[in-house]
């Protein structure tokens, strides 16, 4: 068995809310192999972005990490002091946050922003070596070296997203977490950016966690896919298997909510509304929206069970595939 680069065990995050405690991430466990591409998919509010932040210990009040363990190359992160954790962000695990292309500093040139990231992590280089390093990074993500002298507003959305990837990989991280990196881009540019991310990741040997809701993007990009619902993982499987034989009814609903280009008239949203995290239904949180739900689903919360072929699903009704 290969050693996992990232091991998440029973991670829990909650937010204090006047109407009660909101459990945004409720006991999530998974591991990530070196170089692996893992997808985390689910509707808005399912906890996928919160989990990405929790891995990096970047949850701010009123949110808090209630427990669980995150290990990077066997090192437990929850016991690190704040300074060690700060160094590890970017250097060990790099986050490309949601909407990151709009979080570039508008009054700093791209080169200076990369320089900042390097300096902040103790990389001191001569002016020429630094300029070379920045030019290399920009070329790696498919930008001209001259982009270093540009301000963000002079770049297109795709170019800004590439600049964010350049910052994310500047310290050769072991894990890149990309939270909806292409959601604001049109399809042609999205494909170009994802191709660049794939190449960069392969060259670095880094593992990737891709957070998003586009099942098409997941099917084409990741090796393994986790589906989140109401703060929990409800199915994890190799992506090919997930696409051919989804075990959880929610996974099937997510797949069929994606507009197809093969046949028309199949466009259907998932019935009902995503549950309120502070007021979750009893039993299986999906049961009010599930057409198959029975008595047991209303009472007993299903745990993840093996479904054959490296797949697990948390559904009382799912049958393992031989």
């Amino acid at each position: 068995m290969s050693e996992a680069v990232l091991e998440v065990r029973d991670l829990r995050v909650s937010f204090a809310h006047p109407l009660g405690l909101v459990r945004a991430v409720d006991g999530v466990s998974f591991s990530l192999a070196p170089g692996e591409r893992l997808g985390l998919a689910g509707e808005s509010g399912c906890g996928k972005s919160t989990m990405a932040l929790a891995i990096l210990r970047m949850i701010r009040p009123p949110g808090r990490i209630d427990g669980g363990s995150v290990r990077l190359d066997g090192v437990e992160l929850s016991v690190l002091n704040e300074e060690a954790m700060r160094r590890l962000r970017l250097a060990g695990i790099a986050l490309v946050p949601q909407g990151s292309m709009n979080s570039l500093n508008p009054v700093m040139r791209i080169g200076a922003q990369i320089e900042d990231a390097l300096a902040d992590h103790g990389v001191s280089l001569s002016r020429t070596a630094l300029a070379e390093r920045i030019a290399d990074l920009l070329e790696t993500v498919g930008l001209r070296a001259g982009v270093a002298a540009s301000y963000p507003h002079q770049l297109s959305g795709g170019m800004k997203q590439r600049a964010c990837i350049a910052i994310a990989i500047c310290l050769r991280p072991r894990v890149i977490i990309a939270d909806e990196p292409t959601s604001a881009l049109d399809v042609v540019v999205q494909r170009q950016v994802m191709e660049t991310l794939a190449r960069v990741q392969r060259d670095l040997g880094a593992a990737v966690i891709l957070v998003g809701h586009d099942m098409g993007l997941m099917a084409q990009f990741v090796d393994r896919l986790g589906i989140m619902y109401a703060g929990r993982l409800v199915e994890v499987a190799p992506v090919g298997q997930m696409v051919t034989v989804p075990r959880h009814p929610y996974t099937r609903a997510l797949i069929s909510s994606l507009p197809s280009l093969e046949h028309r008239g199949g466009l259907q949203g998932i019935p009902g509304l995503a549950p309120l995290l502070r007021d979750l239904p009893s039993g299986c949180a999906f049961h009010p929206r599930c057409s198959l739900a029975g008595e047991r689903c209303r009472i007993e919360t299903p745990a993840l069970r093996p479904m054959g072929g490296n797949a697990v699903a948390a559904c009382h009704l799912a049958e393992p595939v031989a």
């Binding site: 999205q190 494909r191 994802m194 099942m215 099917a219 990009f221 051919t244 994606l258 197809s260």
Partner: peptide, 10 residues
């Protein structure tokens, strides 16, 4: 990107 086991997008 299509939901398919045919992977030729990247």
């Amino acid at each position: 990107p299509r939901v398919s086991t045919e992977r030729n997008w990247v």
